[in-house]
Design a protein around this nucleic acid. Structure first.
Lengths: 133, 133
DNA sequence: ATAATATATCTGCAATTTGCACATAGATGT
DNA sequence: ACATCTATGTGCAAATTGCAGATATATTAT
């Protein structure tokens, strides 16, 4: 499109991993499944999942964490030890664990669909390129 | 989340292929790259790409086509021959062709990111399941 | 004839997510 | 005193989506 969505790196930019709707959610949950941490640290951890070149805005991370807490997927406590301002430390719950598993099932399906589309594209291009009419 | 987006089959439903933002766009363009057709027929064609169990609303298809036309990615003409109401027949343009190629590059990257996430999940689960604290 | 259904396109509208800009505040360095 | 890094959060506009409904032609059933 001419304008494209305003997702950074969306259309019109460099290929980006963020065409997946609400992808930060499962990423945060997986990180929290490995270790409990605070939002600022989770932003660093997200780079592992392709958010290095196309970082998510911090507001998205914090809001997602708060909304997941409201949904009972994670819990939080304040950590005032250590230097700097207090940190809100998140832990995943059993419900969050199940929710993550459901997300993974969805993503497997998404992956399958994407693969089938790319295969269809490649097959079509391979035979008779350049004729659109 | 509890409510989830209102995308049909989104969270809380059956795994669906529509976590990919604006995925109808490349699907329509690929279909039009193969054959010129009208919107109603394109809706049928979309089933090939995983929209069989989770159909897109017709309004989305028609609006996407109009907006792509405004962007110069496709052109349309009315077809009054044949039975039934007139049909708006779309053809992909050279610009639409390039745009589709860009979309494909994005989707390859998305596919790669998804694959890496799923691998990370599987690897993490394989060692030490059930401890979240 | 009349009604219902299939074909075909399109317009409001509200819900949701996202990104930007900005606000707040403690700790550390110059 | 001032800037910077850490750390969390809010307000707002833009964009996509799905639902509901409007419109209109052609075919089939009653």
């Amino acid at each position: 499109m001419p304008r494209g969505p305003r997702w950074r790196g969306g259309r019109g930019g460099v290929p980006c991993p963020r065409h997946v709707y609400r992808f930060v959610e499962p990423c945060l949950l997986l990180l929290l499944h490995r270790n409990q941490t605070h939002g600022y640290d989770l932003m660093e951890g997200l780079k592992e999942f392709g958010f290095a070149e196309n970082p998510v805005d911090s507001s998205v991370v914090y809001r997602t964490l708060r909304s997941m807490e409201a949904a009972g997927l994670v819990t939080s406590t304040w950590d005032t030890t250590g230097a700097g301002p207090p940190r809100r430390v998140y832990r995943i719950t059993a419900e969050g664990d199940r929710y993550l598993a459901q997300w993974v099932a969805d993503l497997r399906e998404t992956n399958r669909v994407l693969h089938s589309f790319l295969k269809a594209y490649d097959e079509h291009i391979r035979e008779g390129v350049g004729e659109y009419h």
